[in-house]
Amino acid sequence: MTPQTEIFVNLERLVALANGALYWPARETLIVSDLHFEKGSHFAMKGVFLPPYDTRATLTRVAAMIRELKPKTVISLGDAFHDGGSEARMEEQDARLLEAMVASVRWLWILGNHDPAPPARFGGDVEGAMLVGRLFFRHEAAAYHERGEISGHFHPVARVRAETRLIRRRCFATDGERLIMPAMGAYAGGLNILDSAYDGIFRGALTAWMLGETGLYPFAADRLLPDSGAQRRKVG
């Protein structure tokens, strides 16, 4: 079983998984964010030949979650495809795997900034944003305070000092009212949660749940480090 932990957002009980997925037991819904299919081949077009296995690696991760949790609904929180040409570059084998996966559940694509409209071939419903009970799903956190908002987009990572080592990992970032999910794409990089881009998103005390091999590890804001040795930025 994938290591996991309970997180409450806007009083809803959610399960955060160590591979970056989120599960909402009450609604039997699996949420994944920023899959960035075909990022590798996007770089290959420019002559940077990253291993062409990132789409498969990402798909395998999502498929494993569906097998393990058997959700009724899957929500992709946007930026599922790295660019408009992703479908054309995708290996047929990978495309079929994705097709079958989407067909096996109620699949909802939330639109992101990288993929204005997901390729029709794969099916599923498409929404700009979606309110479900007490939770609001959208790609990028709104400028106004939206209680119960689950978003992605930023690819949050956290950095901490453990003994003498510095550890930098993808993370779930939440203050109990809103939550930003980590990117699940195999080649998706990250933006430190202390970066000014996150300013104003969290009102309450921020906790970063860092993804580990055997579990998720919570760190309060005052334990987090920025990426350079720069002064700690005020968070919250």
Partner: peptide, 22 residues
């Protein structure tokens, strides 16, 4: 700063899993 487009660690992980004798 650190805004590199991708990290070599992630590439390593994917390559190790899918083509370890590259």
């Amino acid at each position: 700063g650190r805004q590199v487009a991708f990290s070599s660690d992630l590439i390593y992980d994917v390559l190790k899993e899918h083509e370890p004798d590259h």
